[in-house]
Amino acid sequence: MSTTAPTAPASGAGPAARTPAGLPGVLPLSLVRAGVELRQFWRERDAVVFVFAYPILMLAIFATVFGGQDQGTEVAEIGFAQYFLPGMVATGVVLTSFQSLAISIAVERDDGTLRRLRATPLPSSAYFGGKVLLTLATSVVQTALLLAVAALVYDVPMPSDAGRWATFAWVFVLGTATGTVCGVAFSSLPRSGRSASAVVTPVVLVLQFVSGVFFAFFALPAWMQTLASVFPLKWIAQGMRSVFLPADMAALETSGSWQHLATAGVLAVWLIVGLVVGVRTFRWRRRDDG
């Protein structure tokens, strides 16, 4: 029978849930674990290229393709690169947090890494802390590169007032946190590491298409806008649009405003749901590894 953490003392959850005597605290151990995670990440050259290059490539492709099509005069007036930039920032956050974690944790469970870590004195909180720090570090670098390319190559104007950057900061942090906990929770769904990508990737692709990442959100059918409003990606993208687009573009949103309070509320709800589901369903062993 598979075990869950931290509610299964028989699997060693008790010792792993707290720092044993003589070991550093959870934060130092999380930093050490983050260092291990980062070194492993940089060794996966293909993953590094994908994480950092994907949003930039998608911005270039969609800005070029849709630049010659009718997506609305409002979008044409500000430039297609500027309009699609918020969606690329949002999808980068979701890819780095939700998708990458859901797949990598499923693989680590399948190859026995999680089972071996569970047998060590490392607290489970330090393991998850390392994952959080890895996600935050890669998300920051990925987003910085994307913004630099947008500004230098496509002449996308960056916000000039502190208020917009403050909005960017809380949407980025809350969106990354939400994607991270949801990725941890979702990692228990794939039955094996081999099937993880096939289970997780389609979910992200569908959300990208309905959340205004690849198309102007106001041009999508009403039912699709309603469906997207249930999930975090739409709200992260909308929050980022409020940062990088002119204030009068808020009139194109469903409610005619940027809905910052609703953005924070929906992301907070998903953060809590992800935490609850993750705590109750996370498995350290494969389903067939009793």
Rank of each mutant, 00 (worst) to 15 (best):
F217C: 00
S160C: 00
F80V: 13
T135W: 02
A60Q: 10
G72A: 03
L174Y: 03
S197Q: 12
I78M: 02
D110S: 06
A228H: 01
A228S: 06
L220C: 01
Y127W: 13
T201I: 09
V204Y: 09
L275H: 04
S229N: 05
L23Y: 15
W270G: 05
G68E: 13
R191N: 04
F62R: 11
A177Y: 07
S257Y: 00
D155V: 02
F50E: 09
T167A: 09
R191L: 02
L57H: 04
P123Q: 13
T254C: 02
L122H: 09
F80Y: 12
V51F: 08
A169W: 08
V32H: 13
V153R: 14
T254H: 07
I103Q: 00
L174E: 12
T7W: 15
A151K: 00
F186C: 00
L31M: 12
V65R: 06
Y54V: 08
V49Y: 10
T91I: 15
G265I: 05
L189F: 14
Q82W: 02
V184R: 01
V107N: 01
R43D: 10
S125V: 09
L27V: 15
R118Y: 15
L227H: 04
R45W: 13
A219N: 04
Y127H: 14
I56K: 04
S197N: 10
F128D: 02
Q208Y: 11
E74I: 03
L31K: 12
Q225C: 04
T138M: 08
L271S: 12
G67H: 10
L189V: 13
L136S: 06
R241T: 01
V273N: 10
G274F: 10
G87H: 03
T91L: 06
V203T: 08
R18Y: 11
A102D: 04
S257P: 02
R287Y: 13
W42E: 08
S2Y: 13
F209A: 15
G14V: 15
S124V: 14
A250K: 03
M1T: 14
K234W: 09
Q208D: 08
A222N: 06
D46M: 13
M224G: 04
V153C: 09
A53I: 11
V230R: 10
M88F: 06
T143C: 11
V156A: 00
A250H: 03
R286M: 11
I61C: 11
F214Y: 11
Y127V: 15
V206Y: 02
